[in-house]
């Protein structure tokens, strides 16, 4: 392995990170738009969003990417930049999965919260934005974390369009040197580190989100830390019930 090959692989990391961030951003927008539309009182919105999820969840992100990249130019005489074709395909596909997480999170908010919102004459949109979503989002973050890691690994598909991400550069390096074991072990580690970093960021978000709805976040990981928190919560409750306040 020469230094140049390693450098190319490290540049690939940057491409992979960019793709993950762009697709995740697009996917998040799609997930919230489609996911909330699935709970709409208008049947047409429910139908269209349901149709979207069925199509994009039921087809392959890879095939969709090939369509964008190879078929669109034939049909329209106009070519996507590969990065954009990839971002679009990944974002729209993972957004469909995300929409189901959003829908589930919304459904998990107690119906009584919606009723309280009606009783205060909030509009349906205000209820969603001020009452339902702020309570639903913390519940969505753990499954979003899963999906984000799936997306990170899914970006490897773009190597088939010739986009020089980690997987693509690793493939080149393997062809050049034949050192399959070293190279694949290295990129396995790279994906793992990226996934680990993503998880840490998501955990941080989760903690902040939970604190924002009055749920004390666990300060430190580990079972002992959790036990301590539960114990203080119990004693606080007992104190309140006893009329100490």
């Amino acid at each position: 392995m020469t230094a140049e090959l390693w450098e190319a692989i490290f540049k690939g990391i940057w491409i992979t990170v960019q793709l993950t961030v762009y697709s995740a951003a697009l996917g998040a927008v799609v997930a919230f738009a489609v996911g909330t539309a699935r709970t709409s009182r208008h049947w047409i919105l429910r139908f269209l969003s349901g149709f979207y999820v069925a199509v994009f969840r039921g087809t392959s992100a890879l095939v969709f990417m090939f369509w964008l990249f190879f078929v669109v130019p034939l049909a329209f005489g106009w070519q996507f930049v590969p990065m954009w074709a990839a971002t679009l395909a990944l974002g729209l596909t993972y957004g469909a999965y995300g929409a189901e997480i959003v829908r589930g999170g919304i459904a998990a908010v107690a119906p009584a919260q919606r009723e309280a919102g009606i009783a205060l004459s909030f509009t349906p949109w205000q209820r969603m934005r001020r009452i339902i979503l702020p309570q639903a989002v913390p519940e969505m973050l753990p499954p979003f974390n899963n999906l984000l890691i799936e997306l990170l690994k899914g970006t490897a598909l773009v190597s088939l369009l010739g986009i020089p991400d980690i997987s693509f550069e690793a493939q080149l390096a393997r062809l050049a040197t034949g050192q399959s074991t070293t190279i694949y072990l290295a990129i396995l580690g790279m994906y793992f580190v990226l996934a680990f970093l993503l998880t840490r960021v998501m955990r941080l978000l989760e903690r902040r989100a939970k604190a924002g709805i009055g749920q004390a976040p666990p300060k430190s990981g580990g079972i002992l830390g959790k036990l301590r928190i539960e114990e203080t919560e119990r004693s606080t409750k007992a104190g309140l019930a006893g009329g100490a306040q």
């Binding site: 009723e115 309280a116 009783a119 205060l120 001020r130 009452i131």
Partner: peptide, 16 residues
């Protein structure tokens, strides 16, 4: 509906 207010059995405060 703005003329009407309601207090529920389970309070239904907004936890967020």
């Amino acid at each position: 509906r703005k003329k009407i207010g309601m207090v529920f059995q389970q309070f239904n405060l907004f936890p967020n």
